Computed example of a mutant assay.
Amino acid sequence: MAAKPASVHPPLVVEFAGERHEVPAGREFAIGRDGDLVIDDNRYLHRRFLTLTVENGLWWLTNVGSRIAATVTDGTGRVHARLAPGARLPVVFDRLHVLFGAGSTSYDLTLHSSGGFAVDPGPPASAVGDATIGNVPLSPSQRLLVVALAENVLRQTESGRGEIPSSADAASRLGWTLTAFTRKLDTVCGKLEREGVTGLRGGRGKLATNRRMRLVEHAVATRLVTREDLTLLEAYPLR
């Protein structure tokens, strides 16, 4: 009797902090503070945050955490989605970037697939909900604020981790008062909220750190700011 053929599945590699991890298809691959890929010993990070599994020949990325969401993008900023706790999505691009924050630390990793499921993202999307938001125009001072918050993440040459500065530190970096910085931050967050970006509103139970983290996560994932924008900080040398 002929042996039953093995399930066909695309190979998948997770890249994080300069290391590449080949994901076996025969079992669940867990990512978090503990698991197959240990991201960081960060008490704000779930022990098991994301999992990768094969189903019907496709890889699926699932958020098995209870508090943290992730932003997933094809890398061009044209296609992106918010992966909330309990949600999952298929890995249908040759390269998929995953960004998320825990405490004041931002993390990003990249999924590399060669299974031939790549989808053409097409032209930049118009502003119709959080998963299809196009470019949002920022004033020079608003862009400078976002770059100052995202500086450590943008300076990374490979996927890994970056610290998000406090509002006081970012204001000091730019030579602004904390009051002026906070007012501009409110304006930027309000502008993005009107375009459908979630998670930027403060209030009871909402830490200021979470708002800054979400702003950086969205801005980097959608290429609202890029490494080229770091030149804006040249007039503000580090003290």
Results as ranks from 00 to 15, higher is better:
L224Q: 15
R33D: 05
Y236S: 06
H80A: 04
T62P: 01
R173E: 10
T177Y: 04
C189E: 12
S167L: 01
R48C: 05
A235H: 12
L111F: 13
S114D: 13
V91C: 12
S166D: 09
P123F: 12
T177A: 01
G75T: 07
G202Q: 08
C189A: 14
L96Q: 13
N56R: 15
W60F: 13
N42F: 03
P140Q: 09
M213D: 01
S7F: 08
E158W: 09
H218L: 04
E55T: 02
S166Y: 00
L96E: 11
V128W: 13
E158C: 08
D34I: 00
A180Y: 14
V54Q: 11
N152G: 11
L154C: 04
D120V: 03
R67Y: 07
H218K: 02
Q142D: 13
H46V: 00
F49Y: 15
A25D: 14
E163Q: 04
A87L: 04
M1H: 11
R43I: 07
V13A: 10
H46K: 09
G162D: 03
M1A: 12
V220S: 00
F29W: 15
T226H: 05
G134A: 06
L52I: 09
L89V: 05
D36N: 15
H21M: 03
L45K: 05
T157H: 14
H46P: 03
D34L: 09
G175P: 07
E195C: 14
V64M: 08
G86W: 10
S139W: 08
R223W: 07
L12E: 10
A221N: 01
Y236I: 02
Q142F: 03
I39S: 03
L145Q: 03
A118E: 15
T198Y: 05
D41P: 01
P85H: 09
F117W: 11
F117E: 12
E22Y: 04
S66N: 07
E158F: 10
L37C: 07
A180C: 02
A127V: 12
G175H: 10
V54H: 02
T177I: 06
E158H: 14
L45H: 05
K206R: 15
A148F: 06
L109M: 15
F93R: 14
D34M: 05
S106V: 00
D41F: 06
A148E: 08
R27V: 08
T182Y: 05
M213N: 07
A150T: 01
L185Q: 12
R143I: 01
L12C: 12
L138A: 08
V72M: 01
Y107T: 04
R183Q: 13
F93M: 08
T132Y: 11
A219C: 07
E163S: 05
L37R: 01
G190S: 13
D186H: 15
R211V: 15
D130H: 08
D130K: 00
H21C: 04
G122F: 02
T53R: 12
A3L: 12
D130T: 08
Y44E: 07
L50T: 12
G116I: 09
V220M: 03
A148D: 10
V225H: 02
G160M: 04
T177K: 09
A125D: 07
R212S: 03
D41G: 02
A180L: 13
T182N: 15
G103S: 09
P137F: 01
H9R: 10
D94Y: 02
A168H: 12
R161G: 05
T53Q: 08
S166G: 14
G65F: 03
L185K: 11
P237A: 06
